[in-house]
Design a protein around this nucleic acid. Sequence first.
DNA 1: CAAAGCATGTAAGCAGTTACATGATTGT
DNA 2: ACAATCATGTAACTGCTTACATGCTTTG
Lengths: 183, 183
Amino acid sequence: MSIRHAILGFLSWKPFTGYELKKLFADSLSFHWTGNNNQIYGSLIQLHRDGLVSQEVQPQEKLPARKLYAIPPAGREELRAWLLAEPELPQLRNSFHIQLAWAEALSDRELDSLLEAYERVLEAQTLMCRERARRGLAAPGRSPREILVWRRIEEKRVGDYEDELDWLRSLREDLKALSPEPS
Amino acid sequence: MSIRHAILGFLSWKPFTGYELKKLFADSLSFHWTGNNNQIYGSLIQLHRDGLVSQEVQPQEKLPARKLYAIPPAGREELRAWLLAEPELPQLRNSFHIQLAWAEALSDRELDSLLEAYERVLEAQTLMCRERARRGLAAPGRSPREILVWRRIEEKRVGDYEDELDWLRSLREDLKALSPEPS
DNA sequence: CAAAGCATGTAAGCAGTTACATGATTGT
DNA sequence: ACAATCATGTAACTGCTTACATGCTTTG
């Protein structure tokens, strides 16, 4: 699995330029590659070299030529093959949990302020996700099946952040009960 | 965050060889680097070069020399600095969800068998995690605080897989309701 | 006699991130 | 005047994964 498959996925809707794809990735909750603008252009060049996307160059006056990418049959086959591939388990690597696992070197107060900081970023993320999910995705009207699947995926993502927040809050309470602050 | 911090974490318990660290990573649910045996040896060399771990070479007859690594004050400082660093949000990149998002090219039956395959691997993973969590970690007896934190982290991991399984099952049901199979 | 355990590493490659680089047009 | 939008890319780096490489000892 790499960003190239997701690019093929978007192109299976309709042709896009690299710039448009960049925005699609940035706007979607579920495809949160961070350093996209770079990776997308590179991936498109690769995909084109491999014959999995076609390129239509549209010269513009005084602006760089738009390169509109579409998905030819070979690309659709590659996409389909990937869709049918063995599902991978989610990674679930939470770097904060690893940080926490070694927090024995911190005092109770330091640990609590670390947890508080995590709670703050989680809260912000949860709010942002919920807001974006509420506004709905900018996806073109597709089949009821696809709409259902996409909604479920987005809901799961929001739910995951909310679960992490609940977990964190309950952990903080248990820690407080374990060693109550001298007040 | 990288594997080097987790190595420093383990060494903060007591000295270990690369081989032992490899097993610790392999045995723990929460630190699931896959290609460790390689990365660990390389990271130890780096850490040693940077003065963050110390190395005691113990020659053996007819076996490669054991290299026992310990954590000097500089390493403890680095560990502490990392512990106090800004918490990172969990990544939540689920490559199966991305696969699913583009499954429009699949028939109802193909989609369902994909979901079924995912359910199988998730079930296996959940069982494996639960079993391992039940057996408890091989960690040396530490403070009540550390024990609580470690248990919570492991429980969260199992819970995450279980949630994913619940989510998947409910999605399958909804999809079945949407387009009932011609039986 | 084969498999698992002990014990170390190297090399090649991929995916993703950050930073750098250019430059016109449109909106506030 | 400044920021945002349009539009493309390159280079360097980090972290992780896969495959390769060696060789002895203990257990089944």
